[in-house]
């Protein structure tokens, strides 16, 4: 993507490329997680959960629109949020692998949501201090929604972890499976370092530390144990995704790909 330099001389932002990278990563994470969650609609274990998870997905779609819309502006090639969502190939997506992991059972979906929420919350806190005003605005709006997402998913993880033997086992299995994926959020790559260096976003290590402390407290209430020696499962930030991701995009993009250039 061709965002390397500052285009407008009057632009006070010193760092268009890091801002673009940040917006794209946040937007893709929100979009892909929303897409996964939305597939539960009509199939959740209880009506209340169906409604609550749809709410989370709706918030995330709204956030994806804001982030991708801003990424498109920064890129300056006239691409809209929809263009970015529906007309990019898999290799161009920058979401972490965690959010694209298959839904599994409702426990795995809940655990995935919680691992993301408990990072997302602290990440947005950091982004509220961004040097980029638009990023601050989006982060502030999103943070209000994510506070609720985190409250909900934490509550469910605790109740299911400390529920029946079966619910405990399912949540522990989900945690074991997903924890290595969550670590991709913590490991900074070159783009993350440039984002932090430009004051666009927080240092990921500090976000990781807060997320870990928060998770430890909740996991002890949930009687669940996080793996200690998990090697990060990463690749998404560099556009190297899972095999499942291709099928997911094929489904998501089918209409735009089949009928190029029309209005919907």
């Amino acid at each position: 993507m061709g965002v390397e330099t500052i285009r407008k001389p009057a632009d006070t932002r010193v760092a268009v490329k890091p801002a673009f990278d940040l917006a794209l990563r946040m937007g893709d994470n929100a979009l892909i997680l929303a897409q996964r969650n939305a597939a539960w609609c009509g199939h959740a274990p209880a009506l209340e959960e169906d409604i609550a998870l749809a709410n989370v997905a709706l918030d995330l779609i709204g956030q994806a629109k804001l982030w991708l819309g801003y990424a498109g502006e920064l890129e300056g090639e006239g691409r809209s949020a929809d263009d970015l969502a529906f007309l990019r190939d898999g290799r161009e997506f920058r979401n972490v692998l965690l959010v694209e992991t298959p839904n599994g059972d409702f426990g795995q979906t809940t655990m995935r949501q919680w691992l993301y929420d408990s990072w997302h919350h602290f990440m947005l806190e950091g982004l509220k201090a961004s040097s980029d005003e638009r990023i601050v605005e989006i982060a502030e709006k999103s943070a209000k929604e994510v506070a609720y997402h985190l409250e909900r998913s934490t509550d469910l993880v605790i109740r299911l972890g400390d529920g029946t033997d079966e619910s405990h086992k399912r949540m522990q299995d989900a945690l074991d499976y997903l924890w290595p994926f969550a670590r991709e959020l913590d490991v900074a790559d070159d783009a993350d370092r440039a984002i932090a260096a430009a004051g666009i976003g927080p240092d990921l290590a500090s976000v990781a530390e807060k997320a870990l402390a928060y998770r430890s407290e909740a996991l002890s209430q949930a009687t669940l144990t996080a793996p200690t020696d998990a090697v990060p499962r990463k690749g998404g930030k560099a556009g190297v995704h899972s095999e499942a991701f291709g099928f997911m995009l094929a489904e998501m993009q089918v209409l735009q790909r089949t009928h190029p250039g029309v209005k919907w």
């Binding site: 979009l31 199939h43 169906d50 749809a54 929809d82 529906f86 489904e251 209409l255 735009q256």
Partner: peptide, 29 residues
Amino acid sequence: QLPEGNWITRAPTLDRKAILLAKVQDEAG
């Protein structure tokens, strides 16, 4: 919820996706 829920993951734009998801959610309500 089911017949329309079918198309949530294939809705052609972000707005259409949100509107459809909110609609199917309303039906659950």
